[in-house]
């Protein structure tokens, strides 16, 4: 992951900052320049809830190189309180216990590193609440 892109995405990756349309209230995560609902262009920054529910998940057993030492690991779609859905790795999970509909909480974890000498990339994951 290149440093500039990682840096640009910090508000979303670290703090779940979304754009709330000032015209219709629609929440965009990540923020957009034009509201997909009403086409308005003015937004305020809001922080999404760090609590939510597991909508669906899958278990990654064959991962790309960077994540190959962490398999098997679940990746799920989490509906945060307020309605926004995010895709996130589910950390510390006992895969056999994971159930659709269960409560999850967003935590701050290391996502990957840019090789042995590159930057460390942090962001959100979900854990069982």
């Amino acid at each position: 992951m290149i440093t500039a892109r990682y840096h640009r995405e910090i508000p979303q990756r670290y703090r779940l900052e979304a754009g709330k349309c000032l015209a219709c209230g629609h929440l965009s995560f990540p923020p957009r320049l034009v509201c997909p609902e009403c086409k308005a262009k003015k937004f305020e920054t809001v922080t999404l809830s760090d609590e939510g529910t597991l909508v669906t998940f899958t278990v990654v057993r064959v991962a790309s190189d960077k994540f190959s030492k962490e398999t098997p690991f679940p990746v799920g779609i989490v509906e945060l309180n307020g309605g926004v859905r995010v895709t996130a790795q589910i950390a510390d999970a006992n895969i056999d216990e994971l159930k659709i509909g269960q409560k999850l909480r967003i935590v701050f974890r290391r996502i990957q590193d840019d090789g042995k000498a590159g930057i460390l990339c942090y962001g959100y994951k979900a854990i069982m609440a």
Binding site: E70, D92, F108, R109, R110, L120, Y122
Partner: peptide, 16 residues
């Protein structure tokens, strides 16, 4: 620590 935990993530959780 989990494979994705380090001094920074632990500090963030404690400070939160």
């Amino acid at each position: 620590p989990g494979q994705d935990e380090d001094t920074i993530t632990i500090s963030v959780s404690a400070a939160r």
